[in-house]
């Protein structure tokens, strides 16, 4: 079974508020799906429904062939879930907490000890193992929460903002962890850190106002940005007019003023391909004085803003077959 998570027409209503509005998608084994979207977009609500905490108003969520409202315990056995904010029992120590999780996940005897030891090693919390969780730093608390979700080596992982509150090193560590596990699991992570999507997700969906706005790889999403693969040239004020004039031979040049008296000149991509060779050739031929030349990847932040503002939503929607 390739599709490990299948959502069909998922809807969640809280009174008058439509939190999740008809979301359908599926996640295959080996995929890491990123949920992107602003706060209150419906990411967490969707995850809560998959994890079996919230009951959908309509639609179905199927995990490894089990429908979550019909066989909640079967689904919960197969899912590792890190709720938003990584709640844990503050009056316990990581050691007793993980032992409790292992026990309730059905592990006994040496297998239980082995599982706990392994996951403690993986998330690197050995040094705080016997401190009360409420006394730990945010980073450690988060890692205890992660440990809890991975302890039973589940086929499906649902991680709600797994790197929130971690320092850059820890973020890097957790991302590596997710990548390492990805091959034989289906993973969904939610985040509003866009570089995270680029770093770990094989696919990303953008959710806004409870609706699925875009679906594709991080590269797909970025390819739709106005400046994706544009060649940018940074010049000082003195050389601006000469360089601008020289580059205009390649087509329209856009100038953006930057800090420090520099100006960024952009040569748009030609059918999605960066015209780096053309620009470099031109600079050499004409002996233009430029500070640096680089290809813009398009910014995920911009994509995010555009899509969730709803301005370019329609065009993104149309451009994407499975959104």
């Amino acid at each position: 079974m390739a599709e490990m998570i299948v959502l069909k027409g998922l809807i969640k209503r809280f009174g008058d508020l439509l939190a999740v509005d008809d979301i359908s998608l599926d996640v295959k084994r080996g995929e890491v799906l990123g949920f992107l979207g602003p706060n209150g977009a419906g990411k967490s609500t969707t995850m809560k429904m998959i994890a079996g905490f919230l009951t959908p108003t309509a639609g179905t969520a199927t995990v490894c062939g089990h429908e979550v409202t019909e066989q909640p315990v079967e689904v919960k056995k197969r899912i590792g879930y890190l709720p938003e904010g990584a709640p844990t029992y503050g009056d316990m120590t990581p050691a007793t907490f993980l032992d409790f999780i292992a026990e309730i996940r059905g592990f006994t005897g040496t297998e239980r000890t082995k599982r706990v030891d392994a996951v403690v090693e993986t998330v690197d919390i050995k040094e705080v193992l016997c401190q009360r969780i409420e006394t730990l730093s945010k980073g450690f608390k988060r890692r205890v929460g992660l440990a809890q979700s991975m302890l039973h080596d589940p086929e499906v992982l649902i991680l709600d903002e797994p790197t929130d509150g971690l320092d850059p090193n820890q973020k890097h560590h957790v991302r590596n962890l997710i990548r390492d596990m990805a091959a034989n699991k289906a993973i969904i992570i939610s985040t509003h850190i866009l570089e995270e999507v680029e770093a770990v997700c094989s696919r990303a969906v953008v959710i806004g106002h409870g609706r699925l706005l875009a679906d594709g790889t991080a590269e797909d999403l970025m390819a739709r940005l106005p400046y994706h693969n544009a060649v940018a040239v940074r010049v000082t004020q003195d050389n601006l007019s000469i360089v601008q004039e020289g580059l205009s031979a390649l087509g329209p040049v856009e100038a953006v003023a930057e800090a420090g008296g520099l100006t960024r000149l952009r040569v748009a991509a030609d059918d999605g391909k960066a015209r780096l060779a053309d620009v470099a050739g031109l600079i050499q031929d004409k002996g233009l004085a430029v500070r640096e030349v680089f290809v813009e990847r398009g910014r995920m932040d911009d994509a995010f803003r555009d899509i969730t503002k709803g301005e370019t939503m329609e065009s993104l929607h149309q451009g994407d077959g499975n959104a």
Partner: peptide, 14 residues
């Protein structure tokens, strides 16, 4: 209040 209910209710217990 602490949100642990979400943890508890997503463990394989009824």
């Amino acid at each position: 209040k602490t949100g642990t209910i979400e943890l508890l209710m997503t463990l394989p217990v009824s």
